[in-house]
Structure formats: C-alpha cells, structure tokens
C-alpha cells in the first residue's frame, strides 16, 4: 500500500546559509549584504546618469550633485538651513518624548488611564497629520511654532501607544514579585515598570525620530523661509534637481547619525538588555 510520495519517507530540514531562520548566520555575511543593498541604488544612479540614459536636468550625476552640494555649503549658507531644520526636529522630538513617555507609561500601567487616554491616542494616531498642516498654519501662523506642533502631533501618538504596549508586555510575575517584596504602586511604576520598558522607550524614540524628519519636511514644504524642506521646494521651482538630491542626501546622513547615536546610548545605558529593533 502506498500513501503518495512523501508520507512514508523521512524528511529533514535542508541546511541553508542564506535562508537561515534563527539557526546562526555567518558574521561576515551580514555587513556584506548591507553594503550591497546600499550600493545597488548608487550603482543604478551612476549607470543612469553617467550612461546618459536620463536627461541630466532630471537626474544629475553623483559628482555633479556633490559639487553642487559643496557649493551650496559655501555660498548659500546651507549649514544655517541644516541647523534650522535640525533644531525644529529636536524641539518637536523632545516635546513628543516629554508628553509621549509619561502618557504611554500611564496608559500601559493603569487601566483607568488606558480608558481615559488610550482610546483617544489610539484613534487620533490614524488621523492624517499632513491633512492638518494647512489648519495648523492658519491657527499657529507662519513662524517656527506650527512646525514644532506638526512634528509633535505627528509622532507623540506613536510614542505613547508603542510605550504603552511595551508596558503591557511585562510579565505579570515581574510585577507580582515586586508586590510581594513590599512595593507600593509608586515603587512599581518607577522601580519596575520604568526600568523594564526603558529599552522599548529608546527603541520607540529611535523609530519615531525618522517620522519627525518626515513631518518637518512636509511642514517646511508648505510654509517656511529656511530649512532643508524649504531649500528642496525652492530648488524645485528652478528645476535644480542636483540641489534637491543633495538636500535629501543630507537628511539621510543625519538620519544615519541619529540611528548610531541611539544605538550607542542603548549600549552604554542598558548593558543588560538586547535591542529588538534595528
């Protein structure tokens, strides 16, 4: 009697290096693949531009872009724009952390706060902040404050919900053992819940700083006299694609540096933990 082909035979998992799932991965392969993934877009860019397949008005060469960039830094005071944008992101980011972290902790810790704030925060998270940009500019004017408000609103709800979820993932036993050691609710919050979620808090902030840059550029595209977003929209009017591209590269570089900064903070401050995000 036969039951088809494979039922009777023994089946084993075939070994694989590239498709390995939590079974070990050669340490050299990971950076090689990362470099490759970053290089491929650059190679495509070089191929299209140097090869003359695209009008340089639409896609300038990497060298032309860099040359323009150096020129912008020298003659157009691009550093001032970078600093202006950076400060806006920093202000919005700090505001969103100062509000988002305590609200998230409270939502995750207390059922009452989850009811009071959780429903609102989780709902508003789906509101398209970009759609509010014109309104916010009408309400807050054209200065710096609307930009900070937009960044703040763009990420504060994510901060809070991500942190509140992290609190809910703390095992019951961890909290119960603290109770049986004589902890009050206040002790529980500051000596157990806060340190237990600190890695998640740093991870959440790291992820949301990217969001902060997105919202800054959106707000600067619409109303600004300085900043990288303003530079991009201004250059676009004169079809200066090289300048647009250089500004994007600057934002990428800042993002990369921020990421490294958070990784460093994580490693220095939380030697006991492992980051779950990359």
């Amino acid at each position: 009697m036969s039951y088809g082909k494979s039922y009777g035979r023994r089946r084993y998992l075939k070994p694989s290096v590239f498709w390995s799932i939590r079974q070990g991965f050669p340490s050299w392969l990971s950076p090689v693949l990362t470099t490759l993934s970053l290089l491929v877009p650059v190679i495509i860019w070089c191929f299209l531009s140097y090869g003359g397949f695209v009008n340089p008005k639409f896609l300038p060469t990497p060298t032309a872009t860099l040359a323009t960039g150096i020129d912008m830094l020298r003659t157009e005071a691009l550093f001032a724009d970078i600093a202006a944008s950076f400060l806006m992101v920093l202000a919005g980011f700090i505001a969103a952390a100062v509000v988002g972290i305590p609200v998230g902790l409270a939502m995750g810790t207390f059922y009452s706060m989850d009811g009071l704030l959780g429903g609102f925060f989780r709902t508003v998270r789906y509101a398209p902040i970009n759609a509010f940009v014109p309104l916010i500019i009408i309400w807050a004017g054209l200065g710096e404050s609307p930009k900070i408000i937009i960044i703040f609103l763009g990420i504060v709800f994510y901060n809070a919900t991500m942190i509140s979820d992290a609190v809910k993932f703390i095992p019951d036993e961890t909290l119960n053992v603290a109770y049986t050691l004589g902890a009050t609710r206040r002790d529980l919050l500051f000596r157990v819940i806060l340190p237990a979620t600190l890695p998640n808090i740093i991870d959440a902030l790291k992820l949301n700083v990217a969001g902060a840059w997105n919202f800054l550029i959106i707000s600067e595209l619409i109303a600004a006299q300085k900043g990288l977003g303003f530079k991009i929209i201004y250059s676009q009017r004169f079809l200066q694609t090289d300048k647009v591209l250089f500004c994007i590269l600057v934002i990428l570089a800042i993002g990369l540096a921020t990421d490294l900064f958070f990784k460093l903070i994580f490693r220095l401050c939380l030697p006991w933990a492992e980051s779950k995000t990359s």
């Binding site: 049986t180 004589g182 000596r191 340190p195 237990a196 006991w272």
Partner: peptide
Amino acid sequence: PGADRGMVFQNYTLFPWLSVAKNVAF
C-alpha cells in the same frame, strides 16, 4: 500583598536590569 508574605515563582522573576546583588537588595 505585602512584604510579610514573600514569594518565589516558577518562572525566573529576577529583574533583568539589576545586578544579582541589587536584585537581592530590592
């Protein structure tokens, strides 16, 4: 709950952010 009834659980309930000594001193 209170400190008069200490408890040891089945799963490891040490606080991962504290050293062994700090755990005992909690």
